[in-house]
């Protein structure tokens, strides 16, 4: 265990274009929660997770490209 004043370890950088990752659906009904696995050093998990996010964002970009060519609105609920 680390001491109470030890800074949690630095993780690899997030995927390009991603400012934040927020995990879990947030299942509590009274106060907002935050998963801290990564904050407290789940480095291996972060590598796998970031790769999956990078792929997911890239797939969305690719999926959108044909629609742009057809001049269709994006499938975005925004």
């Amino acid at each position: 265990m680390s001491g109470s004043n030890d800074v949690p370890p630095e993780l690899p950088p997030l995927p390009p274009g991603v400012l934040a990752v927020r995990l879990g659906p947030g299942a509590n009904c009274s106060s907002v929660g935050s998963v801290i696995d990564l904050l407290f050093g789940a480095v291996v998990v972060s590598g796998v997770l970031y790769a999956a996010i990078h792929v997911a964002v890239a797939e969305r970009r690719v999926a959108r490209a044909p629609k742009e060519q057809e001049n269709k609105p994006p499938e975005i609920d925004s």
Partner: peptide, 21 residues
Amino acid sequence: RLDDRTMVALDRETARSLGIL
């Protein structure tokens, strides 16, 4: 939201590339 368990905050350029206005 990418799926039930994963939300991401994207910068403007990436958001724009996904069609977010």
